[in-house]
Amino acid sequence: MKVLIIEDDDIYASALEIMIEDMGYQVAGIANNPTEALCLFRATSPDLVLMDIQLRGGGSGIDTARQMPSVPIIFVTAMQEDEVFEQAVQTDPFAYINKPVDRLALERSIRLAMHKYKNSLRSNDGSALHLKVGRQVQKVPIDYIYYLKVEKKQVIIALTDHQQVKVRMPLSKLTKLLPKQYFIQVHQSYTVNIRRVDKVTENYVQIGGEQIPISRRLKTPLIDALEKLKFKF
């Protein structure tokens, strides 16, 4: 799991980095101002963000958090004012921790944040995803999904009713939210719902009239999954 650290104090950022790596997580990067933070966020696609509230250059971690969709954020700050806390709450963070940070408290906050985040994206019965699209949350029935496609730093979810849902989330992260026995990545830019496959050739999969390319290294897992589904080639 990749964690992005946004902290204006270099010494404290290093301390957080040591704690994160000691927990077995990967540090995606460290930023101390909003511009650098957003650049790293887009470049690394972290799984979680640790966000200070006061950033360098007069920047605000709260305003920066509003520009980071589809990722759990934990505020780590020395600020204890009620007004600041209420402003932070408006960004729907997964935790708010006051400095100095206790390692065990941070580790448990991260684990709870990831657990809550994954559950928040699925319906109670696991039949749908709840995805942030713009400023709204949209329900996407899993059975209606044809395939996922990466296009211009976003993922397009193609549905059976010829509708599309566009989300800003890495393909790998979105694929992990779906039933792994049915959703198989066949190309660096595509994941398909094998229950919707109409035809398989040497070079592509056909779903709903669309021809989706197959990567050579990913073809074997696809064939294995289709055979378990008793697909007729």
Rank of each mutant, 00 (worst) to 15 (best):
Y182C: 09
K232Y: 05
Q154G: 13
N32D: 12
N203L: 13
I18V: 11
K139Q: 13
R111F: 15
F85T: 01
V140C: 07
D52G: 09
Q136G: 15
D92K: 11
L178N: 07
V137C: 06
V27K: 00
Q136R: 15
Q80W: 05
L129C: 09
E227H: 15
C39Y: 12
S172Q: 14
L38D: 08
A43T: 07
R217Q: 12
V3F: 00
N33T: 08
L50C: 10
V140F: 03
I184V: 12
D10I: 12
L226I: 04
D198W: 06
Y182L: 09
K180P: 12
Q185Y: 12
K139G: 02
Q181T: 12
V3N: 02
D82G: 07
S215W: 08
Y12S: 07
K228N: 13
L48R: 11
A88K: 12
T220N: 10
I142M: 04
I214L: 14
R66G: 13
V186R: 06
E81A: 15
R195W: 07
L16P: 00
F231S: 10
A78Y: 04
Q138E: 14
I145Y: 01
I18Y: 00
T160E: 08
L159M: 03
E83A: 11
V150T: 11
A225W: 04
D82H: 11
D22G: 12
Q26V: 11
R108N: 08
Y190E: 03
G29N: 09
Y204L: 09
E227A: 14
I74E: 02
I5V: 14
N119V: 11
P34G: 11
Q163K: 13
N124G: 10
N32K: 13
D63E: 13
H162P: 00
F183D: 03
L218D: 00
T44F: 00
Q164E: 06
A43H: 08
V155F: 02
R217F: 08
Y117D: 05
Q154H: 12
N193H: 03
I207Q: 04
Y190T: 10
V205K: 02
L178C: 08
V133Q: 04
S60W: 04
F85P: 10
S172A: 15
P141I: 12
M114K: 09
Y146P: 01
R216K: 08
E17N: 04
Y146A: 07
D143T: 15
I6P: 05
Y144A: 09
I110Y: 01
Q164Y: 08
K219D: 02
D82R: 15
I157V: 10
I30C: 02
K228W: 05
N98V: 14
K116I: 06
H187I: 13
F41R: 03
P34A: 04
Y146I: 01
I184L: 03
I53S: 05
K99G: 07
I207A: 09
